[in-house]
Amino acid sequence: MANPLLKVTNLNTFYGDAQALWDVSFQVHEGEVFSIIGSNGAGKSTILRALSGLIRPSSGQIEFSGSSIGGKSPMEMVDIGISLVPEGRGLFSTLTVMENLELGAFTRRARPLMQETLGQMANIFPIIRQRPNQLAGKMSGGEQQMVAIARALMSKPKLLMLDEPSLGLAPIVVKGMFEIIEVLKAQGATILLVEQNIHQALRIADHACVIKTGRITMIGTGQELLTDPEIHKAYMGSLQ
């Protein structure tokens, strides 16, 4: 197999004295969807926060396209091509849809391509053409999620990270959102997905891992995890 786009090795992080991640290791290859599943407070978001530079890992290696990037600032992470859609979507609610998207291309690398990228985004997300001047805070949750994903893509990321994109959305909207993820995947995007909606997250994933109290307890292809009896018992009992 080719070299992975993202290689995380023995990552440890702390919140104060409390250790949040214990020797977390996984790899994401170019063009794949990698899902991290687990219950609330297991450390899923912490992994994404470390990868986006919001928190500093206390030890371990993060390699991206072959170079070590652990401890870089959020701005540097966006510039080298890692973009996070945080939990709660992270839009600027007092700014318009268009302003949010423009800021998505704030980095030096993405700024010259802003108009071109905006056109591409409008083709994937029709809402951008329909309501460019609406305040982001006035949109529905599903619409906000679409704009948030589009804004993250404005930075021309090599790795798109989505933190609980289905959280708080109606089932029909969740379905639409996963369809968008498939569209992006078909266009060659590499996506790191954190989800509590385990069934959907595993179905769409090439590879996935389960995280429990800060440790990775299982790792495999999406199919393997989807059919694993342990996972069924622990996380999907009611979804049968």
Partner: peptide
């Protein structure tokens, strides 16, 4: 001004 953390995530220092 609205949210510094979200601003950092789009690459604003």
């Amino acid at each position: 001004s609205e949210n510094l953390e979200y601003a950092m995530l789009v690459g604003i220092t």
